[in-house]
């Protein structure tokens, strides 16, 4: 009920509502008209969503049970075959060999790569962003310049930063130029053991800035009085952070963490542009595998099935986070 909800406005306004309500009735603006106009206004979006989002999700579910032939743009029903072929052998059947050897089962291996990427990047992106935000939230000279510096990588397309970092981490690249004198030069991007680390380094570089901005915004919203009160109580810097800053950043950090994890599960462009999934599958993330199966090999059915498996994973995770947060909030 829009009138009810708007009651947060001033008294003068609420007086106006009553006038307006009666005027509305006099003018014959009734619910039918609201219904019509309301739906007219949302119609473009509803159409777009049905055509490009909801319909496709259902269609994706449908083709995940198909052997889809891209040359004919039609499929044949194969039941659960795609899912079975993707998932089997189950990792526990062979002592989790798939996590070490990409040939055993590329899906599980790509999932491992994705998990390593997520675990390696998300905390550093978040804590890095938070730390910089806390430091810059103080009275730092040239704060605007620092903030711009940290934010600059956020402005880049994943393709651009991947191409740049591929050069920095090449055998004859800039970073080896720095490491050579101390004897640590290495073919970072060309070695299966370190290539994913290169992608992660790049992702951390590009991810700190946006989190910093989120946290800076969150910090602005913490009432000054809370710090004042803490100061009067003789709280140390750490105590202030622990008992004032962190609890009050709850919404921001929940959002930042969930978004960071969800997007880390969907990483694909930077891994593709950095090293095309190689060397030896070391940067093949799950979505990159989906891309390769679907768009390079034309196996749309298999790709769709993989996408659904990942979807389930992401959904389960988000739901868990949401429930966890709800249970936490009860404590406050």
């Amino acid at each position: 009920m829009s009138f009810e909800e708007s009651r947060t406005d001033t008294d003068a306004e609420s007086a106006l509502f009553e006038v307006a309500t009666s005027v509305k009735q006099q003018l014959g603006i009734n619910r039918d008209q609201d219904n019509l106009m309301g739906w007219m206004f949302v119609l473009p979006n509803v159409v777009m969503f049905l055509v490009f989002l909801l319909g496709p999700v259902l269609f994706a579910f449908f083709i995940s049970f198909q052997d889809w032939n891209i040359l004919k743009n039609e499929g044949t029903w194969v039941g659960l075959t795609n899912y079975i072929e993707i998932l089997q052998p189950w990792p526990w059947e062979n002592n989790f060999a798939a996590l070490k050897d990409p040939t055993v089962n590329l899906w599980w291996y790509s999932l491992k790569n994705t998990a390593v990427y997520a675990i390696g990047t998300v905390p550093l992106q978040i804590f890095g962003g938070l730390a910089i935000a806390l430091l810059l939230d103080k009275r730092v000279r040239g704060k605007k310049i620092y903030r711009a510096a940290y934010f600059m990588p956020v402005m880049l397309s994943g393709a651009a930063s991947a191409v740049m970092w591929r050069w920095f981490l090449a055998a004859d690249g800039v970073i080896n130029g720095l490491l050579e004198p101390i004897g640590l030069a290495h073919n970072w991007a060309g070695d299966p053991a370190t290539a994913l680390g290169g992608v992660m380094l790049m992702a951390i570089w590009g991810g700190i800035g946006s989190n910093m901005i989120f946290f800076l915004a969150g910090l602005q919203n913490i009432p000054e009085e809370l710090y004042e009160a803490a100061r009067i109580d003789g709280a140390s810097d750490w105590e202030k952070f622990r008992h004032v800053t962190w609890p009050n950043l709850g919404n921001t950090s929940f959002f930042v963490i969930v978004m960071a994890i969800i997007s880390s599960f969907q990483v694909f462009g930077i891994a593709l542009a950095f090293s095309a999934g190689g060397p030896y599958y070391s940067t093949t993330t799950s979505v990159l595998l989906i891309y390769q199966r679907a768009f390079e090999e034309g196996q749309m059915g298999v790709g769709a099935a993989m996408a659904f498996l990942l979807f389930i994973l992401i959904f389960a995770f988000s739901y868990y986070q949401y429930r966890y947060r709800q249970s936490e909030e009860v404590d406050y």
Binding site: P102, T103, G190, D191, P192, G278, P279, Y280, Y281
Partner: peptide, 8 residues
């Protein structure tokens, strides 16, 4: 990729 694995 398997050949690459061997070469690496």
């Amino acid at each position: 990729p398997e050949l690459e694995g061997a070469m690496l």
